[in-house]
């Protein structure tokens, strides 16, 4: 794909945004054939496709998209630890979507309003991500304010992923964003959705020593290596394969 971009693109930022999109796209793709209902099968695959499109543009700004996706080692990926977390049950996937798409939507809206190198992509993607965010919010409401079981599972999922949400607001080199303000708006929005879903805001720290650093620095959690092995296997076994 030939994407038009300015001559100077901050590579660190392109990798951070591009890897978030690529890794979450792959995780969502793992639902294919396993989603609870056909409509969700299609919805998750469509969201994954949007994210893959964004990843292709962003990684192409940083280098060769295929080389970056298929030939980098785990430590060279700059995605958030949140997006690499396994799908878990459907509630976990929805909680991950809620946390991430709220963040991505707010961040892209800011980038789209500026005149930086990511403005063209952000202006386009922000409209797509609005649908992802809406999808996650509606499911959070339905599961949180649903049956005893769905309420409990949604609460468990939100709590389990809470510890990965602090990393989203670490400044990324080359991205002109007001990170503190972004975090405030994110918290406000997530609090609002969880409250309406009759769920409590999870307690506990949102980042800490357990994460041994963060995905933005190339430090990832254990499941990520296994995910990469699967994602990169074909390309590494059959370099340049096409169909």
């Amino acid at each position: 794909m030939t994407a038009t971009g300015p001559a100077t693109v901050p590579v660190t930022a392109a990798l951070a945004l591009g890897d978030d999109a690529l890794v979450l796209s792959h995780r969502l793709g793992e639902w294919a054939g396993h989603a609870p209902v056909l409509e969700e099968e299609v919805a998750l695959a469509n969201i994954a496709l949007d994210l893959l499109g964004q990843a292709r543009v962003l990684l192409s700004l940083a280098g060769d998209e295929d080389e970056l996706a298929y030939l980098r080692e785990e430590r060279a990926f700059r995605n958030l630890q949140l997006v690499e977390q396994p799908n878990g049950d459907f509630a976990h996937t929805i909680a991950r979507q809620l946390y991430f798409s709220t963040y991505q939507h707010l961040l892209y809206a800011d980038l789209a309003a500026g005149d930086g190198p990511f403005a063209p992509l952000a202006a386009k993607a922000v409209k797509e991500v609005a649908y992802h965010r809406d999808h996650a919010e509606q499911w959070t409401l339905r599961l949180g304010d649903g049956t005893e079981t769905s309420h409990e599972r949604m609460a468990r999922a939100c709590a389990a992923l809470w510890r990965y949400t602090g990393e989203m607001f670490q400044p990324v080199e080359g991205l002109a964003a007001d990170w503190a303000r972004l975090e405030e708006r994110w918290l406000e929005s997530v609090t609002d959705v969880l409250t309406r879903a009759t769920l409590a805001l999870p307690e506990g720290p949102r980042t800490g020593a357990w994460s041994a650093g963060a995905g933005r620095q190339g430090l990832h959690t254990e499941p990520f290596g296994r995910m990469l092995a699967e994602m990169q296997h074909l390309h590494r076994s059959h370099p340049g394969a096409t169909w």
Binding site: K127, Y131, D134, H135, D145, G146, T147, S150, T198
Partner: peptide, 22 residues
């Protein structure tokens, strides 16, 4: 621009707490 929020249907089977602010 953007999505139109839509209801997901009336499957509220979990009893809501009497004084919950919904």
């Amino acid at each position: 621009a953007g999505p139109v929020p839509l209801p997901l249907g009336p499957t509220r089977t979990r009893p809501t707490a009497p004084n919950a602010t919904t």
